[in-house]
Amino acid sequence: MKIISILNYGCGNLLSIKRAIEEVGYSPEIISEKKEIEKAKFIILPGVGAFENAMSLLRYKNFIEPLKQFALIDKKPLLGICLGMQILLTKSFEMGEHKGLDFIPGIVTSLKKKSKKKEIKVPQINWNKIKFSKESESTILQKNIHNKNFYFIHSYMAQLDNQKNLLGYCNYYDLSIPAIIYSENILGCQFHPEKSGKNGLILLKNVLENLK
């Protein structure tokens, strides 16, 4: 059975993700060492909290180079969730300006600054519907997913350099928020599949099965 490695770098809801992976029939393991990144077959990058904190933890633990090797050179499957998705991008403007992993070109920007609506509620804490763009309709990941609700909780959003990296989005006030971003073997979800009930589990299963 495929083993799914959840990277423990001190930032994220590891247990919930672990349980969700078990629930869809895979074997999760929590990894905390550099060596384990090299051996992993499939890595999940969780993340809760602030961008700067997440990146400095990855740096402090010397995880950045092994992650680059894993995702960019060996091209093994990597799934980032919520803040774990945001750190896949080039840089973030959350409380200053901070470098990300730069696996997918783009920036992270504040919902409040991006929106022209004064009444916008931030964070978005919402079961929002995911929409897929036409070009991505053939992808395997979206089976049973289009127009379904997923749980979002975030104050910052991705802004991609290339629309080809956008798989799905959601609408919030006047914003179109990237919900699923990808590049070959790398995929990121702004929402929490492990907290999105049955649909979240279906999506997680699709990703674990098909992301290669």
């Binding site: 919930s16 349980r19 969700a20 909780i153 929490h192 999105s196």
Partner: peptide, 8 residues
């Protein structure tokens, strides 16, 4: 609860 409940 969090073992079987996949919502926040």
């Amino acid at each position: 609860v969090s073992k079987d409940v996949f919502i926040p």
